[in-house]
Amino acid sequence: MATAPVLPGGFELPLEPRLPRLGSIDAVALEARAAALATRSIKRESKLFALDLAIRVMDLTTLEGADTPGKVSALASKGIHPDPSDPHIPSVAAICVYPNLVPYALERTRGTDVNVAAVATAFPSGQSSLDVKLAEVREVLDAGAQEVDMVIDRGAFLSGRYAQVYDEIVRVKEACAGRAHLKVILETGELGTYDNIRRASLLAIAGGADFIKTSTGKLPSSATLPVTLCMLEVIRDVHEETGRVVGLKAAGGIRQAKQAVQYLVQVHETLGLAWLTPDRYRLGASSLLNDVLMQIRKERTGRYQNPDYFTVD
């Protein structure tokens, strides 16, 4: 059994007195609240608002072993102009790719306001040495990535080595400072309980995360509405107590426009409108974009759509 960690240096003091009860989440009530928020009925112009927003906060993602420069370029083009036939459709927030593909993404996004985000730190498992992880981070920064999506060391976390988890985040943050924004992936599907999700969220925030992110997308269980609600409530508490603004990225398993709207409603009713910007909220997804485009066209035309009218990239 692991022993309780000594408080790592630099752990923000306002959180420290709360450490003994960081893990107070009632799973059933949390899930009930998330389910209740998911029943919001978002119609007409408010739905169009949400769909438009879903695109603007989207991290259009491809993270496959089969990714190639061509695939990444195509995806970047899609992200910049999701629907070339409709000039009102905004660009996505970022293109999210593996480290070695960052240059190909940047090649397309240059001159646009679409960012390039790179996963790093031995994504998705995080099972490597700190040196290797830091080297990878520096590499993607040197390549020009504007955002870094790192993973926490879940093995360390689950064995109680919180200080190690914290330390890694701090080191990555140091590397990113002034160059890129840091999203810290908790991989909530591996953490087991909402208590742990809350604890890991606080650890990541204390370590300097600009965003906390649910998942790698490489597990069967990734983002869920209760998980993001739990994380949003941490962000809310930190903001209330310290004034610090931290963003949330929900990723993995979000494929339908309807889900995206549910996630946005949750943010809206938990943190308010201020968080509904790409600076504070992201949806990480690969196949979501086309469904959102279909829904937008359906709302505008009143006709249900056929996927063949939307490009597969």
Binding site: K43, F49, R56
Partner: peptide, 26 residues
Amino acid sequence: MTKTKREVARRPASAAIPSGWEYAPA
């Protein structure tokens, strides 16, 4: 993440962020 954004605005003005999100009557 505005500080890393480039200044070229490709997004049409009509897609500017609205000031609120009023749910339509349902």
